[in-house]
Design a protein around this nucleic acid. Sequence first.
DNA 1: CGGAATGTTGATTATATTCAACTGTTGTGG
DNA 2: CCACAACAGTTGAATATAATCAACATTCCG
Lengths: 247, 247
Amino acid sequence: MNARGIRERGREPQSNGNGNGHALARNVLSGLPLFRGVAHAHLETVTSYAQVLRAGRGAPVAKRGERLPGVIVCAYGSIKLALPRTHGNQRIVRLLQPGEIYGTAAILQDRPAPVDAVAIADSLAIIIPRLSVVWLLERDLQFARNLLLELSERFLGIVGELGAGVQQSALQRLAGLLDSISEPGSTNGHWRAQLPASKTTIAGRLGVTKATMSRLLRELADRGLIAVAGNNITINDRHELARLARE
Amino acid sequence: MNARGIRERGREPQSNGNGNGHALARNVLSGLPLFRGVAHAHLETVTSYAQVLRAGRGAPVAKRGERLPGVIVCAYGSIKLALPRTHGNQRIVRLLQPGEIYGTAAILQDRPAPVDAVAIADSLAIIIPRLSVVWLLERDLQFARNLLLELSERFLGIVGELGAGVQQSALQRLAGLLDSISEPGSTNGHWRAQLPASKTTIAGRLGVTKATMSRLLRELADRGLIAVAGNNITINDRHELARLARE
DNA sequence: CGGAATGTTGATTATATTCAACTGTTGTGG
DNA sequence: CCACAACAGTTGAATATAATCAACATTCCG
């Protein structure tokens, strides 16, 4: 139990930088766009310093305001990057999926983590120590360019979200999200949308509380645009859904 | 008059890439952190391709959704980067001051401008064509590192703002802004804050309308924390102002 | 001076939060 | 395998925050 009398659910993160970790780190890192075209010897060096961090569901990977040990790569699992809000609520900035990375800006500026990072499923992360990044930036132009692409991508993404948050209602953002993740249905002509996380998490992603999220889904359902069954949503009128999001 | 029957105020932007422009571009660019430590010959090449753009107060410098010709450097004047909202309202993402640059992320990704850029005072911008940036990134590691520092700085800035917008009320954000721009008063022991732009613009910066901005200032004044005289604000209780912003 | 832009203020409304109670779901230790 | 605790989701009522609408006052410039 912690200080608030609540039993912690997730295991504490455990770091082990050797053993099978080394081979694992090589596998993961060598597949990243970030290291594409980077000299093999350089990549080998970076791999040798990489650390492996396991985090059970609910365990913190990095805390807002604290120093980041290095760039964090999600090897598997799912890690949410979130800003605290009010009691129990949070705004989720990004969901780290396998192969995605976090912390480049903070590492480059040597500043504390701007958001909390928490595993929302049993996860494994590779940590590339700050010094490795700096070292690589001193001798590998291709790495620098890759990093620029990564950062600029993130940047445009976040500006886009700011724009959406400013000129769309929560209902519109939800409609847009559903539209964007919808896939052709298996059997009939309808479309389906599988929520990539719990409704509470998605709510945080959209910048609303779970209570509001519930009402928004209901609103769309009442209008006949969707039908909700747990995390599985049937889309009855994709066209109208998209129109709603646009307008 | 334009289609809406409103007389345009600002002159159309005018580009002239030669004449005195060349020397001017050299002067401005050579002073930027972005080019610190960049080989002299490289800088000279970039300078030779740079363009000069004059924009009168109110004139657009770049339009959201349109292709950016290159990275935009504010040489003098002031340029607002804004997202459209509802009739007449806008969210101002950043105010470009002399020596500051805009468009790196969009240029690197070769994507359209994510925001509108409009001169809010007679301004002069230097445009570094996209190809110059790409060219430089192929041969100058120092430039790549400088660009990384610029981008990561922006990135952390915008994440910070997202955080502020999420966990602070508009009143708190205003208090924080006033606190951050306050300077020791000239004569007595009080502090002063000079708004760096019109109240409407600052309102957009804070993510509220000018009507709300007016009420917020009044609220702080009624509480005795500040006294407003046009764009010149006297801070009576800086400590309490900061406390309000924190809590 | 005149006109446009900027700023103020009141009344009303929209959007989403908060609080609280309740239900359903899941994972774990006994 | 069951019981139980934590988590996840739903719903209603009351509330907060800031937007919108509209009229008016002020300031800035040409």
